[in-house]
C-alpha cells in the first residue's frame, strides 16, 4: 500500500515536471515561463521527494531538509530571476 502510494507520488511529480517544462520550448515571455516553471517544477520536485520519503522513512531528516530547502530556494530564486530579468531586459529591447 505504502509502496503503491510512493510510486504514485513520484509518477505525479514526473507528470508535473513535464507539464512545467514543456512551456519552456514555446515562444512566450520569460515571466510566463518562469511562472509555470516555478509552480509546476517545485510542486513536482516536492512530490517526488515526498514519494521517496514514503519509500525510506529512515532517512526522513535528509529528505525533510531537501523539501524545506526546495520550497524556500525555488521561491526566492523565482523572485530573483523575475526581478533581474524585468528590470534588466527593459532597455535591451
Amino acid at each position: 500500500m505504502i509502496h503503491l502510494l510512493s510510486n504514485f507520488c513520484i509518477g505525479l511529480g514526473i507528470v508535473f515536471w513535464f507539464w512545467g517544462t514543456f512551456p519552456l520550448l514555446g515562444k512566450r515571455s520569460v515571466l510566463f515561463k518562469l511562472h509555470s516553471l516555478s509552480v509546476a517544477d517545485t510542486l513536482g520536485s516536492m512530490s517526488i521527494i515526498f514519494g521517496l520519503l514514503l519509500k525510506i522513512p529512515s532517512e526522513w531528516s535528509l529528505l525533510v531538509l531537501a523539501l524545506i530547502s526546495l520550497a524556500i530556494w525555488n521561491t526566492v530564486l523565482g523572485y530573483v530571476l523575475a526581478y533581474c530579468s524585468s528590470s534588466g531586459g527593459r532597455d535591451e529591447r
Binding site: 520569460v30 518562469l34 521517496l52 526546495l70 531586459g89
Partner: peptide, 24 residues
C-alpha cells in the same frame, strides 16, 4: 540570456532531485 538562465535553473533542480532518487 534569460531564457537560458531559466533553463539552467530548471536543469539544476532536476539534476539534484535525480541524485536524491538515485541515492534512495
Amino acid at each position: 540570456i534569460w531564457q537560458k538562465m531559466l533553463a539552467f535553473a530548471s536543469a539544476a533542480t532536476k539534476t539534484s532531485v535525480m541524485i536524491l532518487v538515485v541515492s534512495v
